[in-house]
Amino acid sequence: MNLEYKVEGGDFTSAGLASSQIKKILKQLNVDPAVIKRVVIALYEAEVNIVAHAYRGVIKAQIDGGGINLTLEDEGPGIPDVEMAMTPGFSTASKAVREMGFGAGMGLPNISENADDFKIDTIVGQGTTLRIGIKFR
């Protein structure tokens, strides 16, 4: 099963809509609730990152019997120092993002914690692509 969702930068009202949709689909597929929670927390953090930092992005989810592969590709400023961005507590988030309850430098570490595979490709001035893989068993 292949799914695709568009995400708009700055649209905090809709942030999490794709994660919510994918959660419903995984529940219908009878995936273990503990695994669903790991998937949607990693995905939700990544979705919020697009809304918080990029101009726009696309979320692609590929689901098969073995697990889920998520690709989140955004057009945005990119990440100048990935190692620094992965450091818990480091953040470049705006005041608006912090007012929404995010932007404390926990997003990427949270994604890494919940994913079986996690890869960041980024080009400064162009955008960032996250690849998140989570096995169902």
Binding site: A15, G16, S20, V40, Y44, E99, G101, F102
Partner: peptide, 11 residues
């Protein structure tokens, strides 16, 4: 705000 509810939903 809506993100506090989304957070509960995801959790």
């Amino acid at each position: 705000n809506i993100q506090s509810l989304r957070t509960l939903e995801m959790s």
